[in-house]
């Protein structure tokens, strides 16, 4: 098990290194320097600026500086567009919002998804099952950038139940979290249903029933534990999707999180910020995936032996 963890850790570091390297060279590939403005810069100003950002050094030295700054100081470099701000500033500013949004969306997804999936599996091939699965297909097919504005129109503008923009209190959290969470709720419902149906046929469930355990105990203690394993495996990739989904949701609901900063930096062609944030996102996703692997070991005893 320790070996497994070490292997995964080495893998994570390798992937991070690939991403950092890729980012660095993509940044250098960009046609046109970051300081190409409509009016050409005066040569001495240009030299000064290049010196400030170490762009006059040879490429390997720049690469070495970039990598060591990230690894040793966690410093993702300056923004070329806003001279007094660094990538880390943007991240520090946006992260709390994005984390909250992601957390609430995940809660929405787990609550709705698990209960729908369980209902569908326990009432297999009944009206409940069909209803839940119809919702699941609907949830997967309607993208968040369609759902978000529709929810705003219905619950914000017509019914006036919730505010349509901002992030200032619980009432503000509901529409964005539902928008971001609906897709995952649908996926989780399908996974839960599938996992539970598979488990129902296992010998250990028959044993549990044969021992005379009551139905709730069989379901809660034995079936769920095996049935939600697909959901847990899904939580790893889901963080990646949640982060990219938050780009859209933050735009729709005007939430000043990481996604907004990222999209703005992409629109402004502020390369260092955009790539720095990609590195940060990737690290975040890799860490979550690792955490999910650990969780997996805790939930499924069969995995520990391998």
């Amino acid at each position: 098990m320790l070996r497994f963890l070490l292997q995964r850790l080495v893998g994570v570091l390798l992937v991070l290194w690939v991403i950092i390297t890729l980012s660095f060279f993509l940044m250098r590939c960009a046609p046109g320097g970051p300081f190409d403005l409509e009016k050409p810069l005066q040569p001495d100003i240009r030299i000064n600026i290049e010196k400030k950002y170490h762009l006059n050094e040879p490429l390997p030295a720049q690469y070495f500086r970039y990598v060591t700054d990230i690894i040793l100081h966690g410093d993702l470099g300056p923004s070329y567009r806003y001279s007094d701000r660094s990538v880390n500033d943007f991240i520090r500013e946006g992260l709390p919002y994005t984390m909250q949004l992601g957390f609430f969306a995940l809660m929405v997804a787990l609550t709705i998804g698990l209960s729908m999936g369980l209902a569908a599996a326990l009432r297999h091939n009944t009206r409940w099952d069909y209803l839940a699965m119809a919702f699941a297909i609907l949830g997967v097919s309607i993208p968040d950038f369609v759902l978000g504005p529709l929810l705003q129109l219905l619950f914000g503008i017509h019914l006036k139940w919730f505010p349509i923009a901002g992030w200032e209190g619980f009432r503000y959290f509901i529409l964005p979290s539902v928008t971001l969470g609906s897709y995952y709720a649908a996926s989780i419902a399908r996974l839960t249903r599938g996992g539970m149906l598979e488990v129902t046929l296992q010998d250990y469930i028959r044993t549990a029933r044969a021992k005379g355990l009551s139905e709730p105990v069989v379901v809660l203690r034995h079936m769920i534990r095996g049935g939600i394993i697909p959901v847990i495996t899904y939580l790893g990739p889901a963080t990646a999707f949640l982060l990219s989904g938050s780009l859209v949701v933050e735009k729709i609901f005007q939430i000043p999180g990481l996604g907004r900063h990222f999209v703005n930096s992409a629109l402004n062609r502020d390369y260092t910020v955009a790539l720095g944030m990609v590195i940060f996102f990737s690290a975040l996703i890799l860490v979550f995936n690792l955490a999910v692997d650990l969780l997996y070991l805790v939930v499924d005893p069969r995995m520990r032996k391998k």
């Binding site: 390798l14 590939c29 955009a274």
Partner: peptide, 17 residues
């Protein structure tokens, strides 16, 4: 390795660059 990258972000980066 590519699987574990957040690919939508890379598409955005490619479009930006």
């Amino acid at each position: 390795i590519l699987y574990s990258l957040p690919y939508m972000f890379f598409v955005i980066i490619l479009m930006t660059i």
